[in-house]
Design a binder for these strands. Structure first.
Lengths: 216, 216
DNA sequence: TCTGACATACGAACCAGTTGGTATGTTAAA
DNA sequence: TTTAACATACCAACTGGTTCGTATGTCAGA
C-alpha cells in the first residue's frame, strides 16, 4: 500500500517544533501581542485545534519560544568556550566574534527574542519575565566565567568584578541590538562591540606594567 | 450663570495632553499593541469620539507619545549642560547623575518609551521607527557634544570618536533599562552606569600623564 | 448661524480559546 | 492473527468578547 516511512501523517514532536519555529519567526518581527495564534498556526501549517493540543495558551508557547531561543543562542556561543585549553581572553575574543558574526547575517535583522519579550512583557507577564530573566542570567554566567578565568590568568590584581562586567556587557549587547534596529544601522552594533572588547582587554592588562591606554 | 474662567468645559489643548499622558503611562507598562484605544480613553477620562477627533488613529497618538517622551527626557537631561561655563567633563558627570537619579525614583519602573516602541515596532511600523530613531539621535547628539568638548579640553590627543562613544552609551543605557526590568534589579543599571562613567573618565585622561586606572 | 469640540452608537473584523468529532496509532485479549 | 477497546494527535467550525474605526448627533462659543 502507501509507504509509511518518510512522511508519517502524525509527528507530534515535529508539529511542536514547527509551531515554536513559527512563533519565534513571527514574534521576533512583530512582538508578542501583535502575533496572533491564528497567524502562528498559518505560518506553521497547523490548525488551531492542534495548537491548543500542544500548548495550553498563547503565553505558554511564548515561554517555549524564549526557551528555544535560549538554547539556540547557547549553542551558538558555546563555540567560544568549548576549547577549554584556549586562553580565556581568546575565548572572550571569540565570544565577541560570534556576536559580530550575528550582526552580519544576510537579510536578517539583528535582534533577540529574549530582549524583545523582556521589553514588552516584563511588567505584565510575570512568568514570561522570569523565563527571560533566566535566559539573561545564563548568558551572564557564561560570560562571567570567561571573565573570571581571564582575570585569574592575566590580571589577578585587577579590581573589576567579573559578574558586574558580564551584566554590563549583556546590557550593552541588548541595547546595541535595540538601537541598531531603530536606526537601521547594524554598524552601530559592531562599533559598540569593538569598543567593549577593547575596554575588556584594557581591564585585563597586567596592573604592574605601566602600559598607556591603547595604541590608538 | 456658571462661571467660565476656571474650568472651561472645552479645552482641546488639555484634552490632547491628557490623552498623550494616558498613552505614555499605559504603553510604558504594556507596550503598544497591548494598549487599546478604549483603555487610553478610560485612563484619560475622554470619550472615543473625542479621541478620534484629536488623533487620526492609534499609531498617530503613539508617535505623539514618543515625541512627548523625547521632550520630557531632553528637559530632564538639559540640566547637565545648561551651565555652559561648567567643565564638559563635569557636565558628563551630571549627565550620568541624572540617569542614576532616574533609576532611583520611588515605585517607578525604570524604563523608556523610546526603547519600548523601538523594540516592539521597528520592523513593522516605519513611521514609528523613524520617530524613535530621531529621538535616539537627539540623545546621542547631546551626549556627543559634551564628549567632544571634554575631549578638546582634557585629552585632545585621545583616539576615540565622540559620536561612536555616544552611540555606545546610548545603547548601554537602553540595554541596562531592559535588563534591569527583566531581572527586576535596578541596581544593575546603576552598576553599569558607574562602570561606563569610569570608562569615559579613563578615555579623557591626558595621554601624557601616566595616571594609574582608578583608586579601586 | 456656522464651526470646531466633543458625545453616542454601532459595525465589521479580529481575537484567544472551546467544542465535538475524526483519523491514526497502540495494546492486549480472543 | 485478528479484533476490539482505548489513547493520542489532529481538525473545522464556532463562541463570546474585544478591537479599531466611523457615522451621526449635540452643543457651546464666535
Amino acid at each position: 500500500m502507501s509507504e509509511t516511512s518518510t512522511k508519517p501523517r502524525r509527528n507530534p514532536a515535529e508539529t511542536r517544533e514547527r509551531l515554536i519555529g513559527a512563533t519565534v519567526r513571527l514574534m521576533l518581527r512583530q512582538g508578542y501581542a501583535a502575533t496572533s495564534v491564528d497567524e502562528i498556526c498559518a505560518e506553521a501549517g497547523v490548525t488551531k485545534g492542534s495548537f491548543f493540543h500542544h500548548f495550553e495558551n498563547k503565553e505558554s508557547i511564548g515561554r517555549a519560544a524564549v526557551e528555544w531561543w535560549g538554547a539556540f543562542g547557547t549553542a551558538l556561543y558555546a563555540e567560544a568556550w568549548e576549547d577549554d585549553e584556549l586562553d580565556p581572553l581568546d575565548q572572550l575574543r571569540r565570544f565577541f566574534g560570534i556576536m559580530i558574526g550575528f550582526t552580519e547575517r544576510e537579510d536578517q535583522v539583528c535582534t533577540c527574542m529574549v530582549g524583545m519579550m523582556s521589553q514588552e512583557l516584563s511588567q505584565t507577564h510575570p512568568a514570561m519575565r522570569e523565563e527571560c530573566g533566566r535566559q539573561l542570567q545564563l548568558w551572564t554566567a557564561n560570560c562571567a566565567r570567561m571573565l573570571a578565568a581571564a582575570k585569574a590568568r592575566h590580571a589577578p590584581e585587577a579590581g573589576f568584578d567579573p559578574e558586574a562586567v558580564a551584566w554590563y556587557l549583556n546590557s550593552l549587547w541588548q541595547g546595541s541590538m535595540l538601537v541598531g534596529k531603530a536606526e537601521d544601522r547594524p554598524g552601530i552594533i559592531r562599533s559598540n562591540l569593538r569598543l567593549a572588547l577593547a575596554w575588556v582587554e584594557g581591564l585585563l592588562q597586567k596592573t604592574d606594567s605601566p602600559n598607556p591606554s591603547q595604541p590608538s
